[in-house]
């Protein structure tokens, strides 16, 4: 992360226009976002520090962000309590998780 253009925070944008600014380290837990922000990839995302996710809506993306921080927080601990997920969100979240590779 020595690249000059890379910032501490990155922006994730949902398909309905919600923007979430989260720590780069947390965002990079998601494999897809990590690849998009990889400085060697030469993608547009790397210069803008902004990832648009046109398949994910705001509600789901919020939950994804919550998970990313939850994952970062518990990275070192064992027997982590499960994060609470509303059942009605599960299917969409699952598809988003598959897409984001988390």
């Amino acid at each position: 992360m020595s690249d000059s253009s890379s910032t501490e925070y990155v922006t994730l944008v949902s398909n309905d226009g919600y923007e979430y600014k989260i720590l780069r380290s947390a965002a990079c837990i998601a494999g897809t976002i990590k690849k998009a922000l990889d400085p060697h990839s030469g993608f547009l995302e790397t210069t803008q520090n902004r990832v648009e996710l046109p398949t994910i809506n705001g509600v789901v993306l919020e939950k994804v962000c919550e998970y990313l921080y939850y994952h970062q927080k518990h990275a070192e601990s064992k027997d982590v309590p499960d994060m609470d997920i509303q059942p009605e969100l599960c299917l969409e979240l699952l598809i988003a998780a598959d897409y984001l590779d988390v």
């Binding site: 994804v64 998970y67 939850y70 994952h71 518990h74 990275a75 070192e76 601990s77 064992k78 982590v80 499960d82 994060m83 997920i85 059942p87 599960c90 299917l91 979240l93 699952l94 998780a97 598959d98 984001l100 988390v102």
Partner: peptide
């Protein structure tokens, strides 16, 4: 170590 993957969490919840 660490948290379960989001996919795993969702699938278990489902």
């Amino acid at each position: 170590r660490g948290a379960k993957s989001l996919q795993q969490l969702c699938i278990e919840k489902l």
